[in-house]
Computed example of a mutant assay.
Amino acid sequence: MPEDLVSEALRRARLGRRPPAGLVIYSDQGSQYTAPRFKGLVAKHGAQQSMSRRGNCYDNAHAESFRRRLKAELLDGGSFPG
């Protein structure tokens, strides 16, 4: 996955949702997420990047599990208000 793709997705998400500073972006250690350009974009918007330590894919497992449960219980076939 190219870095341009994740950077553009972040830009579009920020424009569409306008999250407050402090947004947490969960990712793995992929080259697109560790690229200086993407990291700069994250910092520019006052967001924080959270990623697993190298070789430890379970670091963000609790966050991913929580988001999956939250989505399942809150959405129940619907959608978040936008």
Rank of each mutant, 00 (worst) to 15 (best):
G77C: 04
A47D: 09
L23T: 13
K71F: 05
R67P: 03
D59V: 12
D76T: 07
G22F: 13
L74Y: 09
D59M: 13
R37W: 14
P81C: 09
S31R: 00
G77F: 08
Y58R: 10
D76E: 06
L10E: 07
I25N: 04
G46M: 06
R37G: 11
M51E: 01
L10P: 03
V42S: 03
A13E: 07
P20S: 11
G16A: 15
G16I: 15
A47Q: 08
L15M: 14
A63K: 02
L23Q: 11
E64G: 01
R11D: 13
R17S: 13
F38Y: 06
H62I: 10
V42M: 02
R53F: 13
G16T: 15
T34W: 00
E8A: 14
S50D: 07
L10F: 04
R18L: 15
R53N: 15
A61L: 09
R69P: 03
S50I: 03
D4V: 12
Y58K: 12
A72M: 07
Y33R: 00
R68Y: 07
V42W: 01
G22P: 10
S27T: 05
E64N: 10
Q48V: 12
Y33N: 00
S27P: 04
A63S: 06
S50V: 06
Q29K: 02
K44R: 15
L10G: 06
P20M: 09
T34E: 00
F66A: 03
G55Y: 12
G40E: 12
F38D: 00
R14A: 12
R12A: 14
H62W: 13
G78F: 04
K44W: 05
M1K: 01
L74G: 00
Q32L: 03
N60M: 08
E64S: 07
D76R: 04
Y58F: 09
H45E: 13
